[in-house]
Nucleic acid binder design. Structure first.
Lengths: 163, 163
DNA sequence: GTTTTTATGTCAGACATGTTGACATATTTT
DNA sequence: AAAATATGTCAACATGTCTGACATAAAAAC
């Protein structure tokens, strides 16, 4: 009744599909983060440093509160990681001239290089996954993943043709 | 040349597609884990407890080394989490009669109930995401996510019609 | 039947990531 | 002038992970 029949005539229940979806997220995320984590360990950094470097690289001149809004962690949690990255010369801060309370964050040359190294493996992994699956599958992936995201604010980041 | 043209005639480069794929994984995983994490905090448990409860529930009578192989953490890391779950009556151990070195793990009635509560939100989230995206998108999601996974051993878990 | 390997457990110490709570400072808005 | 905002900082704590070392029981290999 609510079963799905595949080409091979196997029967997959909705529960099975959903359970597999949950597990796909676990396994994919586990493998997606494994290699950058190993590289970060050599700098005595963790995954949190990668996330900060990634998003600052993606949105140069972003404010601390914007970054907090994306990461969904407390400012105290961010402070330690961000402080290390600033002290070690991967990120710079400069006051927003329009609102001098804000500290705008950007990657230094060194930060750009680290970001590139860290994310290269992930970029290759995703690009290969996309190529092997084909454009139609990529569109399906995008639709499903966007629906998994909670808020409209974040979903709009992934409307087609957006950058 | 290597650009992709959407129906709206917007141009999306391969780099953009890949970058969005990376970010989709971040945002989706962040929101996928947020609610169970909040529930776990009420038990003084963390995400690691959820993963253990989930996979033991999924594979009753599994051995400790099987579980370690899925989670990809060290036995010392698992020991704390697993020990708490056993002491607090969510998981039981019993020696494998065929190989008495092995401790086979299963959920207790209490463990089954906790698993159900924790995963209910995730099941709903994925089911809704699948329904809104449609069966073709789900198939694309499955194909892409399977390709993101590193090893063939784990990939075969997601062949169609498999359980 | 002794030796080696395997499965598991445990202790200790370290570090990264996250939390709450409290308070400080500079700047902008009201 | 007062209130709100953006950011920073100190302290204490829980959790998750790691490496390294050592222990025990049982199975497998010789």
């Amino acid at each position: 009744m609510s079963d799905i029949k595949t080409r091979e005539n196997a029967v997959v229940t909705v529960e099975d599909e959903v359970r597999q979806g949950i597990e796909l997220l676990f396994y994919a995320y586990r493998d997606f983060t494994a290699e950058p984590d190993a590289m970060l360990a050599r700098y005595n950094f963790g995954r949190a440093h990668h996330r900060v470097i990634y998003f600052v690289g993606r949105h140069p001149q972003m404010s601390v509160s914007e970054l907090l809004g994306i990461l969904r962690i407390t400012k105290q949690s961010l402070a330690r990681v961000l402080g290390q990255l600033i002290r070690q010369g991967f990120i710079t801060q400069n006051a927003n001239r329009a609102d001098r309370r804000q500290r705008l964050l950007s990657l230094t040359t060194q930060g750009i290089e680290l970001e590139r190294q860290l994310s290269e493996n992930q970029r290759q992994r995703i690009q290969r996954a996309f190529e092997e699956a084909g454009p139609q599958a990529v569109e399906g992936f995008r639709r499903v993943m966007t629906n998994v995201i909670s808020g409209e604010t974040d979903r709009v980041r992934f409307r087609r043709g957006r950058r």
